[in-house]
Every structure is written in structure tokens, then in C-alpha cells.
Design a protein around this nucleic acid. Structure first.
Lengths: 344, 344
DNA sequence: AATATTTCCGTGCCCGTGCACGGAAATCAA
DNA sequence: TTGATTTCCGTGCACGGGCACGGAAATATT
């Protein structure tokens, strides 16, 4: 049926061993033999039998996933099931998947994790570019070493990344505004943002806000916009901040947040049931879903970091085991809309 | 590292061949030897190496997918990509996946397809129970022969099905009503149904309507309900039917359909732009998505038959290749909400 | 020319499982 | 006891690829 190394050997008049050396670029082969084998490979359409290969070789290598520590109730926890699924699937094909976690606010921890990843001599690396400059430098090193890498969540413009799996951030902001207003005329919307001291907001958040604001100015140019800032590192201050904000803006009836922390404002909203808000946020953190089910949050837009991870791992399986390159580099995952009735 | 047949042989004092006979229930083994081997298997936690197995055996069998012919622009076409994904994944593990299509309105064709499927002596069968009674009988035969089968789309209550992958139909109807009304007070909603001559409506459609009506009566008990019937086999009559319906019910501003044919009423709606409707339907058929993007349809609820199929096939891979039984029999897929801004 | 060195290549075993074949041991028939 | 069956079991090859080892051929060195 299918063509084997032995067939190639027969076709070229060489031996199994020599063909094997050519196939793996292991040298010790004359130019003439090399070309003969390559020709035969092309003409015959030879494809190695992965089972035989896996049986003989054992492991195909290690994939390193470099991501922020998955803290209970925070965004990156959502990636966990995707990591598990991907690791299992990859394991079935002799690929080990290792996770390297770091503190997402500690740039030194990120650097250290990058070094550690390199030290493992991985067959591939998956990472969200949490720190732009550092990621840029790291990408350069990876390219030098010829290690393919995949961005998830967001990407930085640098050559040589193997693939990207993320969400169309701008578009999701646009969608957010559309859901929030539901095409009804809206007088004033409130946006709640996180006060960050050290590092700026993440890229996706910025792009979402852009999309959101564009939708508003396109559909409701007269709509008033106001922004509140809260500081999650001082939870007890949140209520006060919101008190002040909503007192100042009594006309606000619609609220959006562009990160995954919409649950932070749920307590305040539930303490003021007389003011009815329409509220849209992002990501199906369990606290968010709970607020959704209680009716405090109207809708959530989800980006499925788990699927991003699983797809990224799968993409490496295709490359490293089957030798298949992906057709498209930039993959945008579905945005799902969650309401209290399809939150499962 | 891991334990092999040779190890089992050494542990039991028997030979590789005998152990193999036990592992595959191939007989020709004394009771005593049989038990010795089984004990060793349990104690050692032996797991066969699938690569070696696949290499030696070639194919693991055939999975038959028994489904309505995927006609362009109709519901079952949506399953196609899932079939392709599943077949590829299964192929990677030496499982062949074959599709057997039939005319979904021809009960004889369904029977014939069932017979043909049986004749192929498949390792597993995947099917939506399009005809209740026939499926029931077919399920009986499959049980006799010990062939595992998986229901997709909907299920019938019969013992012995291996798994079910579908959508929570009732819940999706509930969601549909919630999206349609958007918690605004609604005076009158219109439902459009398909006129069926031979066979009744499909189960999911009925359940969706139930969920829909329950939501309405719970939230808007005074809301008027009216139903229009159209006949897709006479497309030219649809407009007239809708003309009559909407003339009779001038107060209707909200429309729902519970099957995947919402696109059938899009032309009428677009011919009467002066009447603004809120419209919710099901399934991302390309015609539906087009109507969504044009703004004629407000939202679509999607049930992803492709994911159902892919999951079902995957479930068989786990069973037939890895020997892993699924934890849950009844799997309900996500319902996604599509608006013009996340239709991609 | 004889030896040393490099370049190149073939042989053969291994991975773990599936299975055909043949034969030893046990049971039965005469 | 002998021969004919049946029951049970071990040996050995095949699957396709990876790779170590050793050796032949080609080239360099003296």
C-alpha cells in the first residue's frame, strides 16, 4: 500500500540506513546519494509511518507553554482545561507538554521563565506576549535557535512567529457596544477601568475599547461617555470609587468593562438595585458567570483561552509529528455571547 | 519504563503468545492461565502500546456515520466540517470513518442505509434518530450484535446507546425567547412554522417551542402569540402566506422560528422595511448568516452539528483505540449566540 | 607503495504488538 | 498400548523506522 523506507532503498539501489540518514539530515552521505534519495522521496510521495517512528523513538520532544500563573478566579485559569486537553492529545503522539508559569506582574519572573524555557531545549514554545519588549527579545533568540513559537491571546508584530491564536479584540469591543446598547438609544455609558501602576493596560483591552468607542460614535454620536477607575489591589476602595462615580453621573444606565474583571463591580451594583443597569463584560470567569446568572450582568463576551491553547498545541502536533504546516498563521477564535440562559 | 506483554509473560511464567490470547479474548487458553494473566494485568496496570498495536495491525476498524444527505444550504451541511475533522483525527489512529447518506424525508432510504451500515460490520455507528420507530428497531439490532452507537442532534429513549451529543433543545427555546424580547415589554410575537405533510416536526423543534412558550408565559403572560405556516416545497407561496399573516396581525413586531430555515422569511421582511421586526432564528446556515449580516435577522442561536459529529467520532476513537469509556453519556454542546458583529 | 585517515555505506538489532504455525501435553477411542 | 483428537501453549516472523557498529572504498599522508 504505502511506500516505506525499504522501498526507497530498493528504488535508489542504496540501503535502508543510507536513506534514513538522508531523511534525517544526519550527514555521512555523498552528494550523489543524497540527491538520488531526495528525488525518490519526491517522486514516490513517501510519508513516514508515525507509529513506527513513535515506537522506535519513544518521544518526539517537548512543547513548553509559557504563561502567567493560573490563579483561581483569574483570567488565565480559563486556559487550564485547554492545556489539559492539548497535553493529552499531544501525549498520544509522543509529545510532552510542559507548563512554565510566572507572575504576570513581575517582569523578572517572565525573564527567568524565558531562560528556563530555552534551557529545556524545547521543540516548540507557546506564549502570550505579556511584556512586549521582553517578548520581542525572546522571539529573536528563538528564531536564532530555530525553535518555532506560537503566540496566543495577543500578538506582537515580529517576524518569525509560527502561528497566532487569539480573539479579534477590536471587533469584540464593537460587539460589546452593540450588545450593551442593543440598538436602543442610549444617553450615557460608563466604562470601568483598572488602575494600573506599573505596566500599562494589555493590548487586547486597549483594542476592545477602541472598537467599543467606534461603535458608539458611529451609532450614537451624542452618547455621553464617562470612565471610572478602580484599584483591585485595594478591594475596599472599589465601593467608594463607584459611589463617587455614579453620584457624579446619575444618568448612566449602561456599563462596560474591557478586561475580565466585571465581577468586581457586581457587589456595588447589587447594593443599589433601584438603579437598573445594562452591563456587559468579558470572559467566563466563575465569578462573572455567577453575576450573570444573578442577573447583575447582562451579557459576557468570551474568548476561550482554553481553545486557543488547545489549538496552539494541536498546531504543534501537526508540525512536529505529521510535518504539516498550518494554512493560516493568524487564527481568530469565535467570540461567544453568554447570557444567563446559555451560561450552562 | 512502562510494562509490556513480555513483562506480563515473565511475571506469569507463560509466553508472549498466551498472554496475547488472553488480552484479546481469543480462547485456546486454560482457565488457570487466563486468571494468572488477568491478575498480572490488574496488578501491573498494563496498558498496551497503541503505536506498536497500530503498526502491527494496520486498521482498527470502521466507524459508520449515518446521516441525512448534506444538501447545500440545508442544516446537515453544517455537519460536514466536523465529519472531516473527525475522520482525519480518527484516521491518525487507524480508524476509518465512512459516511452513509440518505434522504431525510424518505423512510425507506433510511431503512436501506441502516441495512447497509450493518452489512459493513462496523466498529461503531453514529446517527441522528431521524425516524423514531425505525431507529428504535435499529438500535435493538445493534445491541444484539454488540455494536456501540452514538446519537447526535437528538436522542430517543432506548437503552444501550453509548453516548449522546446534542443541544439542550428546551433551553435553547428559552434562550430564544429571552433574546427576542430582550426583557423589553412585548405585545405580540409571531412564530413561523413549516408545513409538513408526511412526518411530524422533529423533536428538537418541538422542545424549542416549548421552552420558548414557557419563557413568554413566565415573563410576559399577556403577550399575544400567533403562528404562521409556510411550505418550503412551494417557495412562491411563502410571500403570500406571510402577507396574509402580517396583515392579520399588524401588531406583531417580534418573530421567531424554531428550525434552521429563518432565511426563508428574509425576502419578505426585506420587502417591507417600513415594518421593523426583531427576528431570532437557529443555526448558522450561510443564508441565515447572510440575513444576519444584512440586519434582517437580529440573532441566531447555533448548535454546531459539526462539533457534535467531531465529538462523537472522537468518543469512538477513545473507546476503540484507547479503551477509554466516556464519563458522561449525555453531552450537551454550547449554544452560541450570533449577531451581525460576531458572525465572522 | 604502504600506511593512515576520512568519507561513505550496509547489516542487523531494537521498539511492542499481532498472529500464524507447529508442536507438546492431555484426553479420548480402539 | 497404540493411535486419533482435542486442548493448550511457545516460537518466530512481520509491521516500519531509528540508530549503533563495523567495515569497504576513497582520499590523504609518509
Amino acid at each position: 500500500m504505502s511506500i516505506t523506507v525499504k522501498d526507497l532503498a530498493r528504488m535508489t539501489g542504496l540501503s535502508k540506513g543510507t536513506v534514513d540518514r538522508v531523511l534525517h539530515n544526519r550527514g555521512e552521505v555523498s552528494r550523489k546519494s543524497y540527491e538520488k534519495v531526495m528525488k525518490a522521496v519526491k517522486e514516490s510521495g513517501y510519508e513516514p509511518n508515525i507509529y513506527a517512528s513513535l515506537l522506535a523513538k519513544g518521544s518526539k520532544g517537548t512543547i513548553v507553554v509559557l504563561m502567567p500563573r493560573s490563579i483561581s478566579g483569574e483570567f488565565w485559569e480559563l486556559g487550564e482545561p485547554g492545556f489539559a486537553r492539548g497535553a493529552e492529545a499531544a501525549g498520544n503522539f509522543g509529545l510532552e507538554v510542559r507548563k512554565l508559569e510566572y507572575d504576570q506582574y513581575d517582569i523578572e519572573a517572565f525573564r527567568a521563565a524565558c531562560d528556563e524555557a530555552l534551557a529545556m531545549n524545547p521543540a516548540g514554545i507557546i506564549l502570550p506576549p505579556m511584556f512586549k519588549n521582553e517578548t520581542f527579545g525572546f522571539a529573536g533568540k528563538l528564531q536564532e535557535k530555530g525553535i518555532p513559537f506560537i503566540f496566543i491571546d495577543s500578538k506582537i508584530e515580529c517576524g518569525g512567529y509560527f502561528a497566532y491564536y487569539g480573539m479579534p479584540a477590536y471587533q469584540s469591543g464593537y460587539l460589546c457596544a452593540s450588545l450593551l446598547t442593543d440598538d436602543q438609544n442610549v444617553k450615557a455609558v460608563g466604562m470601568v477601568r483598572i488602575l494600573r501602576d506599573k505596566h500599562g493596560q494589555s493590548d487586547p483591552t486597549v483594542n476592545r475599547r477602541e472598537g467599543f468607542l467606534d461603535y458608539l460614535s458611529e451609532h450614537f454620536p451624542d452618547c455621553k461617555q464617562a470612565t471610572a477607575f478602580i484599584d483591585p489591589s485595594h478591594p475596599q476602595g472599589i465601593d467608594a470609587a463607584l459611589d463617587a462615580f455614579f453620584a457624579e453621573n446619575p444618568d448612566i444606565s449602561h456599563i462596560a468593562m474591557f478586561n475580565s474583571r466585571i465581577h468586581l463591580i457586581a457587589p456595588w451594583l447589587e447594593k443599589h438595585p433601584q438603579r437598573r443597569f445594562r452591563v456587559v463584560g468579558f470572559d467566563n470567569l466563575s465569578a462573572n458567570v455567577a453575576a450573570l446568572k444573578r442577573g447583575t450582568v447582562t451579557a459576557l463576551i468570551t474568548q476561550h483561552p482554553d481553545e486557543q491553547l488547545a489549538s496552539a498545541i494541536n498546531s504543534f502536533v501537526n508540525l512536529l509529528v505529521f510535518g504539516r504546516e498550518p494554512e493560516v498563521r493568524d487564527n481568530f477564535m469565535h467570540m461567544d455571547i453568554l447570557t444567563r440562559y446559555n451560561a450552562d
